[in-house]
């Protein structure tokens, strides 16, 4: 998102005063010139809206999509695509309402799926960061683990269902395993790249201050790699959802994916859509959580004002 100042400030001032880290030529106390209100309001960029207006627009976007869905299904539109069998928004909404208020099963499914994904994803985050760091920093690890990781990486995690069934005594553990495997590879690869891309001067600085290996790991490698690792975590949480739902559909006992598939087999289409909406909302919730956490942990990154808020 472009901030108002980007489009209205004269280029000369932007280059010199506002970006001290790009122009390290002055020892003057930092001068963050206040944004000149006058020019800003006069030539306001068309895409700079107040937060309230932006939230309204987002809500409107969802509402229009729902409205279109309602129209297409309520009138059983059949223009090549056939909406006749499709449940309407109101059908889905009333099914959703019934589930939400229907007590036990819905919330039990939700809790099961969330437990599985949180467990699997956290395991993957820890293992992935550890493996990625080892791959980037240790020749032995790169030789021993590198080929294994490269060979296993192309295998879709959901194709591990037979492996999970053979290996684990319970379905529950198998599903967590698949969820973990799905997120493990994006996290590992992102960590490996991020650790390799670190500026060597940081490491040299800490070494000449007397820092040892563990100091390097915790004060340089991990914090420095964090912005890159977060990219892997975001991707990871997304594929984790895909895999936890698929695994539940195939071999689950309870869980949102299991319920959705059950509804399909008994031709409860509104129920299927309730499942899909639930998955969408949960996925959105978890990826937002990763995003918010990431932003808190990387407050030190130089950001242009306005770019930080999405």
């Amino acid at each position: 998102m472009t901030s108002p100042s980007d489009t209205t400030t004269p280029p000369a001032r932007t280059a010199e005063a506002d970006v001290p880290d790009r122009a390290p030529r002055s020892d003057e106390p930092e001068s963050r010139t206040p944004k000149s209100r006058g020019t800003e309001s006069k030539s306001r960029a068309p895409n700079s809206r107040t937060p309230a207006a932006r939230y309204a627009l987002r809500a409107l976007s969802l509402l229009v999509a729902l409205g279109l869905w309602q129209v297409l299904t309520a009138y059983d539109v059949a223009v090549w695509l056939r909406f006749g069998q499709f449940p309407t928004v109101t059908d889905v909404a009333s099914a959703f309402g019934a589930r939400l208020t229907g007590g036990g099963p819905y919330w039990q499914d939700l809790a099961d799926s969330l437990t599985r994904i949180v467990t699997g994803f956290l395991l993957a985050a820890v293992l992935g960061v550890a493996t990625g760091t080892a791959l980037a920093r240790s020749r032995v690890a790169a030789d021993v683990l590198g080929p294994l990781v490269e060979v296993l990486r192309p295998v879709p995690a959901i194709a591990l269902v037979p492996v999970a069934i053979l290996l684990f005594p319970s379905n529950e553990q198998g599903i967590v395993f698949i969820t973990c495997a799905a997120a493990f590879f994006p996290v590992t690869v992102a960590t490996r790249h991020a650790v390799r891309a670190l500026n060597p001067v940081w490491e040299e600085a800490v070494r000449t201050l007397g820092g040892g290996r563990s100091r390097l790991l915790f004060s340089v490698l991990l914090p420095g790699a964090l912005p890159g690792v977060l990219g892997g975590l975001s991707t990871g949480v997304g594929v984790s959802w895909i895999c936890v739902i698929s695994a539940e559909m195939i071999s689950g006992e309870y869980g949102v994916g299991y319920r959705t598939w059950q509804d399909y087999t008994v031709v409860d289409y509104p129920g299927v859509f309730v499942g899909m909406v639930t998955i969408g909302l949960l996925g959105w919730l978890t990826s937002t959580a990763v995003e918010v956490l990431g932003r808190r942990l990387t407050r030190w990154l130089p950001r242009t004002e306005g770019a930080a808020r999405a």
Partner: peptide, 18 residues
């Protein structure tokens, strides 16, 4: 390297996350 000999770099060697 050792803490008794510290090095000041030409480039920015501060840890940006501290």
């Amino acid at each position: 390297p050792g803490a008794e000999r510290s090095l000041v770099f030409q480039e920015d060697a501060l840890l940006p996350w501290r």
